[in-house]
């Protein structure tokens, strides 16, 4: 009989080192700079910056700083389900707001 419960032992045996996180931090700083820069160009750029760079930054924090990269699929699914739910709430709300 195959036993289905996962063993509580750590999934990741090889821990990441300092360097990777410092690199991610540098990227985050650069992206923040880009975001500020874009917002000074025009309103359209500001909105595009908001819609693209912000989720990218958040994604980097989730993926590296919060160790999602090193976790199994369950944690990724949990995060995706949450974001998906919020997105659907948002879309359905705008089915009212946007068609007034």
């Amino acid at each position: 009989m195959s036993v289905s419960i996962e063993h509580p032992a750590e999934a990741h045996t090889e821990h990441p080192g300092y360097a990777i996180f410092i690199k991610v931090w540098l990227v985050l700083l650069v992206l923040t700079g880009c975001l500020v820069g874009m917002s000074h160009v025009s309103q359209t750029y500001a909105v595009w910056g908001l819609l693209t760079l912000t989720p990218l930054k958040a994604g980097l924090v989730f993926y590296f700083f919060m160790h999602l990269k090193y976790e199994g699929p369950l944690f990724k699914v949990v995060v995706l389900v949450t974001l998906g739910t919020l997105l659907i709430f948002f879309a359905l709300l705008f089915s009212d707001v946007a068609f007034h």
């Binding site: 089915s95 068609f99 007034h100």
Partner: peptide
């Protein structure tokens, strides 16, 4: 609410 939302 908007008609769209009502139908949905």
């Amino acid at each position: 609410m908007s008609g769209m939302a009502l139908m949905l």
